[in-house]
Design a binder for these strands. Structure first.
Lengths: 342, 342
DNA sequence: CTGAAAGCGCTAACAA
DNA sequence: TTGTTAGCGCTTTCAG
């Protein structure tokens, strides 16, 4: 037999079924307008030729590709995984797919990857935070591409933002500790040079409660980073009675490290986080933290993007509520300080 | 001025620049073959008309969409997030993008979403495990679509598999405990009815070490689930001296719960996991577990898929090494059992 | 109910 | 160096 040239197309199917291409197209898009018998014949031809519709050809006619892109710093952090989970689920309900790309918190990589997403036909973009290159804005503005920013909130920003108030989150944590009487607090945070959310949280602290001394520790944003911070805290600052972590992963690391050193939490040192990861409430002791509604943020972002893409409605910026979750890891300053028993 | 009808296309740009469409196309794809002056004129026209190339039109000519799809049970589990992180990074180096879809471990949802990914033009697919519907296989076989399965290994499977030996992983954990003298072990695992990897691990245990009694606890695959299991373990089984968790998240939950009950690990109860999450080695006590190379698996999957998509080379199945990581959470059976001090 | 034919936006021969 | 033109695979009028 003759070798099958390439993939079968509409014309091939039409020929095999002895109908016109229009009829084949109808069998796909409006089967009820095709006579039973003809339809059967066409369907059989499709089977036999193993025909599959070409997404590109469809897209070229409809002008739609049915997918949007999300640019996140990393997938290896629970926060973004949960945002994307919410985003994917909700986009699916709008019959949209999700393309993900990671930026390592580098605006230049972000711009490149955004270009890539646009090249393959993304109908809209979601980015994290408010640090973006002019090239990035150039891209989306040229294409008048729907794009929203998450994890932050500013109604005056160039992109519609959907997120929470990072300043308020950090201050809520500080207030909680200060109100309990802590006067010397170690602040543990991730890299601030490339992340505006972290920076916002750090800046929110300075001078907010003048009566307390703040000592900053910058570490990698990971459990391991938290452990490192934990060590630094217990060796360096004898009078420190509480640790404020700008992220729950860090808080977990600090906690494990303090436990390893035999320091009681919250007996000797109080510990508070920001994020409220799914595991935080199950830690021992249960972690006091500031809840950030990341799943809801994903959903909201999906609805906003989908609406924009489908009906050209530019979404309103949206501020999501945060909430202080007081649990077991904080209490009044202990008598003993960060000195291990040893 | 007249309202701009739709988006500008090549013809519009050509007209504005007073050249032919071919020249405009060349400015995009082979600028060096166009005279400096002409090129400038064309580029200006592009700017003015805010022209953007249509991904669909390109795809229809090249026959390529430059993206592949990944179907994972969920994004809210560290394992998949890390796999996808590796996958995305490596795909990017092949200039391929990644579309993600979640299945909730339901093969029917998987088939639907696979259809959706194919509809929008995915050039290849990555799925998790070996439980798939006939519809799914129908889809990929009709389209002769490159598709690989991860998190499992079986050279005879219908799809090329890239993963580790789940049976060996579970047995390595059991052996470690049994070798230390544990004779009654609680096995904690996630839902088994819909997850073949979990099932493989459970089945690997039965009769593997006849001298030990195994008591099974099925809980949701989360920290909270681990906590629930922890409670069950300490109330139900007085003679239990060790807990084997088929997943590190579960082990973390069990650990926190045991700590909450004042039970020493590994003093009174030993604890072992499977996965080796980034945080596991930093827990207190450091968790003994079986390392699963999920990042590498993501990379390998990316290379396999990219190769298949680009050069029609069907990849070889690939078995990745696992490794028992003996850390601080296991030891010989303690004298006291799961009864809290209270 | 079915078919002919005109595009959709772009690329790639082939000519000039 | 540039233009002409024929497609790519499909949808969609508009006529039968």
């Amino acid at each position: 037999m003759k070798a099958q040239r390439k993939r079968a197309n509409l014309r091939d199917v039409a020929a095999a079924a002895q109908v016109s291409v229009a009829t084949v197209s109808r069998v796909m898009n409006a089967p009820e307008t095709v006579a039973e018998k003809t339809r059967a014949r066409v369907e059989q031809a499709m089977q036999e030729l193993r025909w599959l519709p070409s997404a590109a050809a469809r897209a070229i006619n409809s002008g739609r590709t049915r997918f949007v892109g999300a640019l996140v710093p990393t997938l290896e952090h629970d926060i973004f995984a949960r945002v994307l989970a919410g985003l994917e689920r909700q986009l699916a309900s709008h019959r949209l797919s999700l393309v993900v790309a990671t930026t390592d918190d580098d605006p230049r990589i972000e711009a490149e990857k955004a270009q890539g997403l646009i090249d393959i036909g993304a109908e809209g973009l979601m980015v994290s935070g408010m640090t973006h290159t002019p090239e990035f804005f150039g891209l989306i503005e040229r294409g008048q591409l729907p794009a929203i920013a998450i994890s932050c909130f500013d109604p005056d920003y160039r992109l519609p933002t959907i997120g929470y108030d990072n300043t308020a989150a950090a201050r809520a944590a500080l207030d909680h500790l200060a109100d309990q009487g802590h006067r010397r607090i170690a602040v543990v945070h991730g890299p601030s040079n490339l992340n505006d959310r972290t920076r916002a949280r750090i800046e929110a602290l300075a001078g907010h409660r003048p009566e307390v001394d703040l000592v900053y520790h910058e570490v990698p944003l990971s459990i391991a980073g938290g452990c490192a911070a934990g060590q630094a805290v217990r060796t360096a600052a004898a009078r420190t009675s509480a640790v404020l972590c700008l992220s729950d992963v860090l808080a977990s690391g600090v906690l494990f490290e303090l436990q390893r050193a035999g320091i009681a939490v919250p007996g000797q040192i109080s510990l508070i986080g920001v994020d409220d990861l799914p595991g935080s409430e199950h830690l021992y002791p249960e972690l006091t933290t500031v809840h950030l509604p990341v799943s809801r943020m994903g959903l909201a972002a999906a609805d906003a993007l989908a609406g924009w893409v489908e009906t050209q409605t530019v979404p309103q910026p949206r501020l999501l509520e945060i909430e202080l979750m007081v649990r077991a890891s904080t209490g009044p300053p202990g008598r003993l300080n960060g000195q291990p028993a040893a």
